[in-house]
């Protein structure tokens, strides 16, 4: 499920200048492919301004999202990997960003479940942090999907 959603929404970039920029860049494919409106990006950034880096789920991995269903057209997820980490508030280094756009309260839960399978297994997580292109990433995700 996760691999299906990510296809076409994946980016690998060398570096970005700020965490705000990293959210914008990571979300770009979702705007282009009509999952979200531009405003959703601002909501995600404001959320971090307001509550800090709670979206950094585990070291190096962040999942920006916001409570703003109005600006979400359909449930989607995108992926951005940075070669050099960017600092999020509270000095948190982030290299991998998943943008989550949830249209309702249940549809995205399978995506979350797959994501959790990746993050909870140390071996998978290690491989995951080292993927270098879209193909490797999709293969890895497909291997953990049930």
């Amino acid at each position: 499920m996760l691999s299906q959603y990510l296809k076409g929404n994946i980016k690998f970039i060398e570096r970005v200048s700020s965490w705000e920029k990293s959210i914008k860049l990571a979300a770009e494919p979702l705007v282009k492919n009509k999952y979200i409106k531009e405003k959703y990006i601002d909501s995600m950034i404001n959320n971090v301004h307001e509550y800090g880096s709670y979206i950094v789920l585990v070291p190096e991995i962040a999942m920006p999202h916001a409570k703003d269903a109005e600006n979400v057209k359909k449930t989607g997820m995108s992926f951005l990997k940075l070669e050099n980490s960017v600092l999020y508030p509270e000095e948190k280094e982030v290299k991998i960003i998943f943008i989550l756009a949830a249209k309702d309260n249940s549809e995205h839960l399978e995506l979350i479940a797959d994501l959790s399978s990746i993050l909870a297994d140390e071996d998978v997580l290690k491989q995951f942090k080292n993927v270098e292109n879209e193909e490797e990433l999709i293969k890895l995700i497909e291997s953990i999907e049930s």
Partner: peptide
């Protein structure tokens, strides 16, 4: 719990449930 009740809280709950 989280702000939206959809993203990080769902991830945390799913993982903890598995544990």
């Amino acid at each position: 719990a989280c702000d939206a009740g959809a993203g990080s809280s769902a991830l945390g709950a799913t993982t903890f449930r598995k544990k």
